[in-house]
Design a protein around this nucleic acid. Sequence first.
DNA 1: ACGGATTTGACT
DNA 2: TAGTCAAAT
Length: 729
Amino acid sequence: MPVARPESSGARVIAHVDMDCFYVQVEQRKQPHLRGQPTAVVQYNSWKGGGLIAVGYEARKDGVKRSMRGDEAKKACPQIQLVQVPVARGKADLSTYRNAGSEVVSILARKGRCERASIDEVYLDLTDAAEAMLAEAPPESSERIDEEALKSHVLGLNEDGSNLKETVREWLQRSEADHRDKLLACGAFIVADLRMQVLKETEFTCSAGIAHNKMLAKLASGMNKPAQQTVVPFASVEGLLEHLPVKKMKQLGGKLGSSLQIDLGVNTVGELLQFSEDKLQERYGVNTGTWLWNIARGISGEEVEGRLLPKSHGSGKTFPGPQALKTIASVEHWLNELCEELSERLQSDLDVNKRIAHTLTLHATAFKSSDSESHRNFPSKSCPLRYGPTKIKEDTLNLFQAGLREYIGSSGICTHGSRYRGWGITSLSVSASKIVAVPSGTCSIMRYFHGQDQSCCSSEQVKDRFPEAAPSSPSGTESYSGSHPTEPPIKFHEEARIGGAMPIVDENEINTEVCMREDTCAALQPVDGQDPSCSSQGAHHEFIQETSALSSSVRAVVLPGTQCCTELNQNELHMESQAEETGTKYLWRGTRPREQKRKLVKDKGSSSILRLFQNFNNSSSQKREHATITDETQASSSLNFQSMGTFSELNEAEVPKENLLGMPTLGQQDELRRDAWDYKIDEIDPTVFNELPPQIQQELRAWLRPQKRANLPKRGSTIAHYFLPTKNT
DNA sequence: ACGGATTTGACT
DNA sequence: TAGTCAAAT
């Protein structure tokens, strides 16, 4: 259900950029001989020619549509070139398109806040850039306006096919032009420029809409395709919406839109105007009601989120009709395939973006032939996510079996001997969510331990030290006591294994600050016993509880004087640069970086960080301690694209191509590594503490001391200093 | 017996 | 919170 957002005060400049038949373009770039030819992208060629998922414009002329079968498309357009989606592990592999999408995003993010809305769409908030442009080079004054920029369609101005350039020029140069219009015009220039850069650097064309809010921008981007852009001046909003079918509006393409038509007899957005807010709320609830009332008037306060990376990763496949899976073995097989893909992508995300996912979820759809009663769905199940393909597979299978039992319930059906007993699985998907940036410090601590001097750690290193590392709760959002008493502290057990090569610690290099965070924890395998999740058949509930309970550990962070991985989010970076460049304080609109706070609490004994700090040389001892740490940092997470630039360069220079493509080489590495790391975190000897630089020792003592540090350390604390990087550090 | 495969966001 | 549902591409 859509939800109403308050409209922000000033006029914004929002753009929606939409790639034209994106998958087709990606394939045409790969195979240039397809350019200009009627082309469509199809998956699963086997049945009826496969299903089309993207259709090029040449083919659309012949009436070829998405969701046609390959055979139908051939009928409609005999010369059509059907390109198959890459297949990996027996399923469609969309990674080439994802990567291509990232290329585009990294370009579009150059001006203003950028939100990746889907694999081939972004929203941009260009308010600041447009205002800046207006301040120094008003559109009507600039003599040599980029020719391309003049080709915008402007609703209410040149819809009738009159020549674009001249009408736009006139529009811009009208002295009485509304300030808002001029802002939009600037936005249109910027977008035209960005689109040109995209074309130049990626060979992809895109279309765009420029308006005062997301909803209108989105609407506009689809009005003139391909490779064109459309501006929605404030004055033409009413006319635009008046005759627009409700179903065309985002969020109204489904049941809600149907309800408007059927229940209210409303077919155009204009017709919605006659209903009072109360009426709409009464019918659809307060939130949706207000939202409807607003969009009827072209009002939509949704912010453009500064987010360039996806919030979750998933891998799934359907098994329609006869292909339904009917044995545990076949389900396991496919789950394994899905998990491998997911694991690879998670690993890539860690390598490239330094992010860790915290939750693993399994979705399935199923049918049971018997027991017609209660057409219940197969329940989704989730658990803490543990990294590594093997772990993910194990956990996923357990989730599935838990779900299956629940699904089958007390009905006569059972899974006897994993044989078919009247159920079938028609779709499976595994996904990873609650993804947060890993603290930049983790790479420093690696460097500390290894005496290496590379500028950033790779996930290999992270994984080496925290082979089973997986957080039990999203970092950066934890709160504890003090001002936010709602969330319980996180407990840290220390089954996490670490180990490996001996650290070559160069004391001279330790001009670092040290601190601890919760955040990435380890879900672990009990050292002595077997992994609780291994018991394939049985005790699933116990397993899940067990996993949750154990899935924590501690992470130590050594912060170098010079940060290697910048961890500012986009907003902050923009604020900084804006302030520098223009000297203005508050050009920024929308979400402000929140004040960061942190908390640390200790349970008993000294923290495992101490032990972590040394180990490496010997193994032994069976100590165990528990520390509890929480922190609440918003901004310290999210490594965004500003720094992506850095990464790209770095990648191209020194990282194997696979990484650039977001596909790290896995495989045997993984298994080898597994054997290599045999030490346990419990075996770390605290004496190393004394070898730490005094400053670090002091900080550590302070931080490890239980008590309520009810208030964040403000100043004088090097740790606090670090964790408040946004301002004045 | 399906348009797949993904992703996001709201509600409970 | 976990799980469900709607919607979009």
